[in-house]
């Protein structure tokens, strides 16, 4: 569920007729008013329906859960009494998404700047096209590529990280096994969210008004200084929005994670240790075999993912709003 794209704008009002020009509203206006108002209401109804469904089914499951739903590192809804919790899933989802963001956001900004401000048009256009192609690859293909190609290659990187950066704790490898871990998932997710972040930031960078760039140039700014003084500040809210779109995808990504990760219900701060899990991966892996109650339990975990996504989006909007008076939109 990606809520970053589903903000509802209030439906536009039909022009008001006043004074001597008062007359019957024209049919085109009324039809358009009805359509746009209907679309707005429809969106709210859908959101309410999803939230209601999730909450209702989750309520059934959580009320019978014998353990604390939020802190338990176990998933056994079929047991007697049922014991299940989302601690591992929340941890795995957040950690893999954070790794993905740390890798993808700077690279995406770099590519976007190269396309918008450095590359000659001859190169920029095909490059932008290639980035678009990256977005068109289905996620199951990414998963297969990750499992078959990326994992063996990352084994070497993992031992290298363990040897030289093991002292950082997070890169210390305590368990045996191939690189089917959260770190690999994070890298794969980074590649998957790269195109959307790149495309949105590139569009924003291209919209920086010429006069702001010229203001910096005329002061004797080099190209990098122009980017630092004019382009990045202007694109700031766009970069945040783009990152949230990418984060939304990373949080909810299912197939690629399910194919690459070898799941286990253990929380480990050592990113290179195999195991862990994410909300979406866990639902995909267990949904088919679960009974009615097991499905309710999975839906309860889905509700948590939904809430996390909402919170992340809300936080992003708050950051953008707080800086509004300095935003480039005032120009």
């Amino acid at each position: 569920m990606d809520t970053a794209t589903t903000t509802s704008a209030p439906p536009p009002r039909a022009p008001q007729q006043t004074g001597t020009t008062r007359g019957k509203p024209r049919p085109g206006d009324r039809i358009f008013l009805g359509m746009s108002r209907g679309a707005g209401i429809f969106l709210l109804v859908i959101m309410a329906a999803i939230a209601g469904f999730l909450t209702y089914r989750a309520g059934i499951a959580i009320s019978k859960d014998d353990a604390n739903f939020l802190t338990t590192s176990e998933w056994n809804p079929a047991g007697d009494p049922p014991v299940f919790g989302i601690a591992v899933l929340a941890f795995g989802t957040v950690v893999s998404s954070v790794i993905a963001m740390v890798i993808a956001v700077p690279v995406a900004i770099g590519i976007a700047l190269f396309i918008s401000h450095y590359a000659p048009r001859r190169i920029a256009t095909p490059l932008a096209y290639v980035v678009d192609l990256l977005a068109a690859v289905p996620s199951i293909i990414y998963g297969l590529w990750g499992a078959i190609f990326l994992v063996p290659y990352l084994d070497g990187l993992n031992s290298w990280l363990n040897e030289y950066l093991g002292w950082t704790y997070i890169f210390e490898k305590t368990g045996e096994g191939v690189a089917r871990n959260l770190f690999t998932v994070g890298i794969l997710l980074a590649i998957m969210i790269l195109p959307i972040i790149t495309n949105v930031t590139r569009e924003v960078f291209l919209q920086v008004p010429k006069m702001h760039e010229e203001a910096a140039l005329a002061l004797g700014a080099t190209r990098w200084e122009v980017i630092r003084m004019s382009v990045l500040p202007f694109g700031r809210s766009g970069i945040i929005s783009a990152s949230m779109l990418g984060l939304g995808r990373a949080l909810g990504e299912t197939m690629a994670v399910a194919v690459v990760l070898s799941p286990s219900f253990v929380i480990s701060g050592h990113l290179l240790d195999p195991g862990g899990g994410t909300f979406a991966q866990n639902i995909a892996a267990k949904f088919n075999e679960a009974d009615e109650f097991g499905r309710d339990a999975l839906i309860a975990s889905g509700l948590v993912l939904f809430v996390i996504t909402l919170v992340v989006n809300g936080a992003a909007r708050a950051i953008i709003a707080r800086r509004k008076e300095y935003s480039g939109a005032n120009a």
């Binding site: 008004p209 006069m211 702001h212 010229e214 203001a215 910096a216 140039l217 005329a218 002061l219 004797g220 700014a221 080099t222 003084m229 004019s230 500040p233 202007f234 700031r236 300095y326 935003s327 480039g328 939109a329 005032n330 120009a331």
Partner: peptide, 22 residues
Amino acid sequence: PVAVRRTVGMVFQRPNPFPTMS
């Protein structure tokens, strides 16, 4: 050219203060 622009200042047609700066 960057050094030139540091010694020859310019004011543009439309006021263009950096919108993100105080």
